[in-house]
Design a protein around this nucleic acid. Structure first.
Length: 477
RNA sequence: GUCCCGUUGGUCUAGUGGUUAGGACUCAGGAUUUUCAUUCCUGCAUCAGGGGUUCAAUUCCCCUACGGGAUACCA
């Protein structure tokens, strides 16, 4: 075994990538980068019944969108493949046989129905629901009888029945479990495929994984895994169990309370940079007050030792705020590229690049996510709609005088530029004696359809002269 | 039920055997802006409770409460 740091992200392709998984992937990635190790992707697809079409592809594209590149894994290759567990069945079979030979595992011929009854009975007795071990000591004769009958069986791990196990977790430190609370875990299902527990241990060993960094929901499985390492005579990797991401009611983050798939967040217009930054800070923090990090800054700042123990609520309010910060502080052209698909979706034909960027710029300080980006562009692409209150404002005598004045002064000028607009604004106030709330709201209303919104010169610039005149004329009626 | 893990404002968090317990989001108020938004400033609010140990505990130990996770031929 080398001293190289090798970590893995090992999702099962059962749907879209969950933000919690994203954080797990990110922490693995960051740790590898930090220490100059390798980041490996392994697909844990041992459960055929949970196979979801397209999930693997979705995983690849999402990781790519997030900029989390792996050193070894599917598509990429590596010396430790294959990286799909479904392609490693022969390997697992070999090791299970070894366990059987060593007496560390045994065949169990109980049917699922038998087990249901057993658990029910144990429960009514106030016991835990572990397997009661009735097939632990089947005679050779009995086993052969079952085999000759072609009876279905699973292979279970023969867990010690007394004593306790203590191990050290990078995050939790010392953790102890009594052995009599650990189940004789099924290692191989009756379909001949391994369970996560077997596959994960065999693969982590064979792939020379040095640190297992995964969610806290796995903490209680560690004794089984460690026992497996011991049974094989292997050195176990360091364990590192991350605190969970929580709903606002503190339960494990789930679909019930909104979107949890990275893809969903991306579609709503959260930037990948925001998501990464936000999720990095859920459970980890540098010793300072810094809240904004690029990926490469995270690579330098990250450390396993500073991971928190307690779960963190995924606060969408703060995510929104952070995304707004990214929207405003990232180069306008970059935001423009991210925003383009939303304009296409809205069916807004983009007149020219300069105006397009002005539209994006108007929106970016007023929105939190990019799916709102066209909201402030709408008045430029569709007919204005006025409420009764709006119409009252447009109808007043001073508004009408104002509109006439502007039309007269714009119509013959060669160009409608900011200089002219400011001059006319000034003259409106001086010559017409229309100022303040009799000046700006009516103008903006006539041109933009709302008393609030972007600055007048910006509106007029995007509208261009012809349309400005047209809208003033409409307001004149 | 049983086992395991956790607990600094509503939320994310920094921090320490002696601090006015720091920052961010949210919320409230104010300033700037022709308006909205942005931006800036100010304010509200926290060490779960009870026992120890100690000159001193938010910090160390124990108990309780609460929260979460695991209890599958799912991962």
């Amino acid at each position: 075994m080398s001293n190289e740091i090798r970590v893995r992200f090992a999702p099962s392709p059962t749907g879209n990538l969950h933000v919690g998984s994203l954080r797990t992937a990110l922490y693995n990635y960051l740790y590898a980068k930090k220490v100059g190790g390798k980041f490996i992707l392994r697909i844990e697809d041992t459960d055929q019944t949970r196979y979801v079409d397209g999930a693997v592809e979705n995983l690849f594209t999402t990781l790519k969108a997030m900029g989390l590149e792996y050193d070894e894994g599917p598509e990429k290759g590596g010396e430790y493949g294959p990286y799909y567990q479904s392609k490693r069945t022969d390997i697992y079979n070999k090791y299970v046989q070894e366990l059987l030979d060593k007496g560390k595992a045994y065949r169990c011929f109980c049917t699922p129905e038998d087990l249901d009854i057993m658990r029910e009975e144990r429960k009514t007795k106030g016991l835990d629901t572990r397997y009661d071990g009735r097939c632990r000591n089947l005679t050779e004769h009995k086993i052969n009888e079952h085999l000759e009958n072609n009876d279905k069986f699973v292979i279970r791990l023969k867990i010690p029945q007394e004593g306790e196990i203590t191990f050290y977790d990078v995050v939790r430190e010392k953790v102890t479990f009594p052995w009599n609370m650990v189940d004789d875990q099924v290692l191989v299902k009756s379909d001949g495929l391994p369970t996560y527990h077997l596959a994960n241990v065999v693969d982590d060993h064979l792939m020379e994984i040095s640190h297992v960094i995964r969610g806290e929901e796995w903490l209680s499985s560690v004794p089984k895994h460690l026992y497996l390492y011991e049974a094989f005579g292997w050195k176990p990797p360091k364990m590192c169990h991350l605190p969970l991401l929580l709903n606002s009611d503190k339960s494990k983050l789930s679909k019930r309370q909104g979107d949890v798939a990275v893809e969903d967040f991306l579609n709503k217009g959260y930037l990948p940079e925001t998501l990464l930054n936000f999720v990095a800070l859920l459970g980890w923090h540098a010793p300072n007050n810094e809240e904004f990090y690029t990926l490469s800054e995270l690579e330098k700042a990250f450390s396993l030792k500073r991971i928190n123990k307690s779960g963190s609520v995924f606060d969408v309010e703060k995510l929104n705020w952070m995304n707004g910060q990214y929207l405003r502080n990232t180069d306008l052209k970059v935001i423009g590229e991210y925003a383009r698909k939303y304009f296409e979706k809205a069916g807004y034909h983009i007149p020219n690049e300069k105006h397009y960027l002005e539209l994006v710029d108007i929106a970016r300080s007023r929105i939190h996510k990019l799916d709102e980006v066209t909201e402030f562009a709408k008045p430029f692409f569709s007919e204005l709609e006025f409420t009764d209150d709006d119409k009252e404002i447009l109808k007043t005598e001073s508004s009408q005088i104002l509109f006439k004045f502007w039309i007269d002064n714009i119509i013959d000028s060669p160009e409608l530029n900011e200089e002219l607009i400011n001059e006319l604004l000034k003259r409106s106030a001086q010559e017409l004696e229309i100022k303040g709330k009799n000046l700006y709201p009516p103008l903006r209303l006539a041109l933009y359809g709302s008393a609030h919104g972007p600055e007048l010169p910006t509106i007029m610039d995007i509208l261009e002269k012809e349309k400005v005149v047209e809208r003033f004329k409409n307001a004149l009626k």
